[in-house]
Design a protein around this nucleic acid. Structure first.
Length: 519
RNA sequence: GGUCCGUUCAUCUAAGGGUUAGGAUUCAAGAUUUUCAUUCUUGCCAUAGGGGUUCGAAUCCCCUACGGACUACCA
């Protein structure tokens, strides 16, 4: 297993939107590649035309791009999957449907060396056998135990002539791998250590199908990983049961020396209950499971982290810590830091239940550190939706005040509408608590006081008002909260003097005049 | 059913034979604040069970239980 250079791949199937677990797999591949100065390749495994979903491939690419996970091989300069055969790049194309011509010879090669054979069993026949076995509480395994009794080229009852004719004249035959008899397959996983499986439990998997001239996942995957000189296969745990077959395939081809190292990542689990995280859980519990919003060909819309207001950095940071940690107590990492610190031997073996609360917390952490001007840029489109036209500078100052109160950009309007429009209603609970019979008169006096203020500046006003409250023997909390109610309409927000200096004297006086309950 | 993988607070996890089993999220209480939020302090909460090995086990071994993945001419 010698590779001079680290080369890893992310090999999604365009059968739907990329799930956050898939993003995590891509992320770990990316981090590993970058850390070792290697290549991170994207390859599209679209050998199943039945399950192909239009738009899914572009969705995957867009998602990775949003996350900042950039493949350095497999995409063209304009961000499309490289599909032409390029003399300068022996590894292209990167879409398996366009590599169709490559696979058949490898399937035949295995037949020639006795590691594979032709099979003609119909789907119905096999289904029947499986059902029958199930009824008898037995296991149906298509391998050396029974293969000679089934319809294939290893069955002595089928003549050479008949076989040759079938191969030539019919389309419903496949190439099956011939699982070696009575052997213990010993494997190694970078995360899980040594694993071993006996071949009697393994199926003679279909490698290639004449019906559509296409390989199945197993063949295409091994052939492409070999041809693309992949050094490490980092993929989801759902592939672990196929690992023995993949080992055997490398062996059958005689590629053991260049066989990649394997690392199987644990799954992302539902926040509650049991099982792996699915789209349904997001709908049920109210969080996205996809990086970007996705509209299915049928028009069904699934929410995305981006559209929900998550920062890509926060999303990636959260994902990185699901199943990995650097062993320190640090939790906030940039992609650069992750690249430096990542290591496969600190990847957790057990599945991680996804915690939506923690995801929010990560976003909040990033929110606090974002520059006001950057937040203003994100907030402006939302303001325009509310017919607000405000200068970037003004919006940036508002963002500065509210960002520590918000988790998402989408929270901003609720938290700051009063910076742009006067309150149209007043929070009931706060009214009960702070609006007393003597309040209207106090607000009237405050109005006069502020109207007379020469300098409408924060510190000056603060001194002025505090002095007035003290001199009048008023209760500080009572007056200030009533004041807040007039200006904000609720019991929330930053310092009153910050607010009024920002909205200005005229607006402040207007809102005091229009105080609650028509007083 | 079979095969494989896994199991430390409710959740994410640290502790690679010796710690009062640490941190974070959530929740609760308190402090700060004119309010909300932030921040700070404190609290609640865990080694699945049983056997070994050892002076000593969350850590190594075995069994049990539980969980998960896979079991297609899908990936």
């Amino acid at each position: 297993m010698s590779h001079s250079k680290v080369r890893v791949r992310f090999a999604p199937s365009p059968t739907g939107p990329l799930h956050m677990g898939g993003v995590r797999t891509a992320l770990f591949n990316y981090l590993f590649a970058r850390q070792h100065g290697g290549d991170f390749i994207i390859r599209i495994e679209d050998t199943d035309s039945q399950r192909f979903v239009p738009g899914a491939e572009q969705y995957i690419i867009d998602s990775l791009k949003w996350c900042g996970i950039a493949p350095n091989e497999g995409l063209t300069s304009d961000g499309k999957v490289a599909e032409t055969i390029d003399a300068n790049n022996p590894h292209a194309p990167y879409r398996q449907s366009q590599r169709k011509a490559i696979y058949r010879q490898y399937a035949e090669q295995l037949v020639n060396v006795g590691y594979a054979y032709y099979a003609f069993d119909s789907a119905e026949e096999l289904d029947g056998l499986r059902k029958q076995a199930e009824e008898q509480k037995e296991n149906f395994t298509y391998n050396y135990a029974i293969r000679e009794k089934l319809r294939n080229s290893l069955n002595p009852a089928i003549s050479q002539e008949e076989m040759a004719q079938r191969l030539k004249e019919t389309n419903n035959w496949v190439v099956r791998f011939k699982i070696p008899e009575n052997r213990e397959v010993k494997m190694h996983d970078l995360i899980r250590g040594d694993i071993s499986v006996h071949t009697h439990t393994l199926d003679d998997k279909v490698l290639w199908k004449k019906a559509d001239d296409l390989p199945t996942y197993h063949l295409a995957n091994i052939v492409d990983d070999h041809l693309m000189q992949i050094s490490h296969v980092i993929r989801g745990e759902e592939w672990l049961p196929s690992l023995p077959l993949h080992y055997l395939l490398y062996e059958a081809f005689g590629w053991q020396d260049s066989q990649p190292h394997f690392a199987h990542l644990s799954l992302l689990l539902k926040p509650d209950g049991k099982g792996k995280l699915s789209k349904r859980d997001g709908d049920r519990l109210g969080f996205p499971v996809f990086p970007l919003q996705w509209t299915s060909p049928e028009g069904e819309v699934s929410r995305g982290y981006r559209e929900d207001g998550y920062f890509a950095e926060a999303f990636v940071n959260m994902l990185a810590l699901l199943g990995w940690n650097p062993g320190t107590e640090q939790e906030i990492f940039s992609l650069e830091e992750l690249t430096r610190l990542f290591s496969l031997d600190r990847v957790i073996k057990s599945g991680a239940k996804f915690n939506p609360d923690k995801a929010k917390w990560f976003n909040q952490q990033y929110m606090k550190t974002k520059p006001d001007s950057a937040l203003a840029t994100l907030y402006q489109p939302i303001l325009r939706q509310h017919d607000i036209n405000a200068s970037d500078d003004y919006v940036a100052r508002v963002c500065g005040f509210i960002k520590e109160r918000a988790t998402f950009i989408n929270d901003f309007w609720d938290l700051s509408s009063y910076f742009f429009v006067a309150p149209t209603s007043y929070d009931e609970k706060a009214m009960q608590k702070y609006w007393k019979p003597e309040t209207p008169e106090q607000m009237q006096k405050l109005h006069s006081l502020l109207a007379g203020a020469q300098l409408f500046e924060k510190e000056h006003l603060e001194n002025l008002v505090h002095q007035w409250i003290t001199d009048s023997n008023y209760n500080m909390g009572a007056v200030m909260n009533a004041f807040r109610l007039c200006i904000v309409g609720a019991s929330k927000g930053p310092s009153m003097f910050e607010i009024i200096t920002l909205i200005g004297k005229e607006e402040t006086l207007k809102r005091l005049q229009a105080s609650p309950k028509g007083e």
